[in-house]
């Protein structure tokens, strides 16, 4: 088996054995497959792309084909999961705020990753180049990008505050999903991908 993508490796470190996990936008099921085998996790994935549904089923991952923008309340009651994970999906949602609220409702903890729009290269391209940033993490042009709700670490954290969400843990990595010293010192400037572990304040004890 090829090595797990580093951000997924970080996430799986945060997930305890034998827990229940919901993966929003689970892609080809790599994370759930890994968690199932390494941590005996019981999980479901939600995904929209037909080819990914096939890949998930091939891996024996429980996958539900649905559009996350239609919400997840149709399927899941409150507190159905220990963790709800959303990797590189939030920024492509029409209603990220609603989805964030829903994920914190159906799960005890949330794990969210997204590309940091506050990274210095993004800032430089906009400030000096005068054009929308294009990078390894954000490879599309403004007119064909699926990423319609980009944000910075600062933006995300202020939304969390607004929604009564406490940040339990934060990591930033570069586009190759590696830890760098810079990301630790100036995460919003030097981190390319943000990884958060979050919980509702009212659940935090």
């Amino acid at each position: 088996m090829s090595e797990l993508r580093p951000d997924l490796a970080i996430i799986s470190e945060w997930i305890s054995h034998e827990s229940r996990v919901l993966d929003l936008g689970c892609g080809d099921g790599t994370l759930l497959d890994h968690l199932k085998r390494q941590r005996n996790v019981d999980g479901y994935g939600l995904e929209i792309a037909p080819a990914n549904i096939v890949s998930c089923i091939d891996k024996g991952v429980n996958v539900i084909q649905t559009d996350l923008d239609a919400g997840i309340s149709d399927f899941f009651d409150e507190d159905s999961f220990d963790y709800v994970v959303m990797t590189q999906t939030l920024q492509a949602m029409y209603y990220p705020e609603r989805l964030l609220k829903e994920m914190m409702r159906v799960g005890r903890e949330g794990i969210v990753t997204f590309p940091n729009f506050g990274h210095w290269r993004c800032r430089a391209q906009l400030a000096l180049g005068g054009h929308m940033p294009v990078s390894t993490t954000l490879p599309n042009k403004w007119y064909n990008t699926p990423n319609i709700h980009l944000c910075t670490l600062k933006d995300f954290e202020s939304l969390c505050r607004k929604l009564g969400i406490r940040i339990l843990q934060r990591s930033v990595v570069d586009h190759a999903h590696r830890y760098r010293l810079g990301g630790k010192i100036l995460p919003n400037l030097l981190g390319e991908i943000a990884i958060y572990r979050i919980i509702l304040e009212r659940r935090f004890s």
Binding site: P50, N62, V63, I64, T66, F76, S80
Partner: peptide, 16 residues
């Protein structure tokens, strides 16, 4: 699907 998920059953769903 919802009813199966309520009971933590093993389920895959494709909306073709």
């Amino acid at each position: 699907v919802k009813a199966l998920l309520d009971g933590d059953k093993t389920v895959c769903y494709a909306e073709i």
